[in-house]
């Protein structure tokens, strides 16, 4: 049952991701990316990483995509849709990405083992996060503060 759900949400996520980078309308692409991230959260649930799945839906679906859509509100979406895609760059992108994927999967297929879908909620993750990895955690909080101040300082209108 879990495996069927994994493949279902994995296929949905990949298809919506492809839709999001190929659609002419950027708003449609953003909404497709939102669906892709939410089904990726469901994929995390099917392998047992429940807390990561919840955080994925909240942060990616609720914060990052909404930030992109709000930034798009200030722009002219019709003019963005007139963007011309060069055939040569699309062919180069397809060639590079397929080559990279084949190389990675050839190496990855050598890794043996079995995925154990043990449930990891907030309790299991809190212990290493707040003891073993406390310093990186604090550094990340400073990074977020710096990013907030920097974003406000850059986007502010000059007097």
């Amino acid at each position: 049952m879990k495996e069927i759900l994994f493949y279902l949400f994995g296929v949905i996520s990949a298809v919506l991701a492809l839709l999001s980078v190929t659609s002419k309308n950027v708003i449609k692409g953003g909404v497709a990316l939102l669906g892709s991230f939410i089904s990726l959260g469901a994929v995390y649930f099917t392998v047992g990483a429940e807390f990561v799945g919840i955080i994925q839906v909240i942060v990616y679906g609720g914060a990052i995509i909404v930030l992109y859509l709000f930034a798009l509100l200030t722009m002219d979406v019709k003019k963005i849709a007139e963007e011309k895609v060069r055939g040569s760059s699309a062919a180069a992108g397809a060639f590079l990405s397929i080559l990279l994927m084949i190389l990675l999967l050839l190496e990855a297929s050598k890794i043996a083992g079995k995925v154990k879908p043990a449930v990891s909620g907030a309790k299991e993750l809190a212990l290493p996060l707040f003891f073993k990895y406390l310093l990186p955690f604090e550094i990340v909080s400073i990074l977020l503060l710096v990013a907030t101040i920097g974003a406000v300082a850059i986007a502010r209108r000059e007097e």
Binding site: A17, V21, T22, K84, V85, G93, A94, M101, L104
Partner: peptide, 12 residues
Amino acid sequence: LAIGLFGIVARR
């Protein structure tokens, strides 16, 4: 990864 790389190389 492949889809993201394709988007970065192909889109403008």
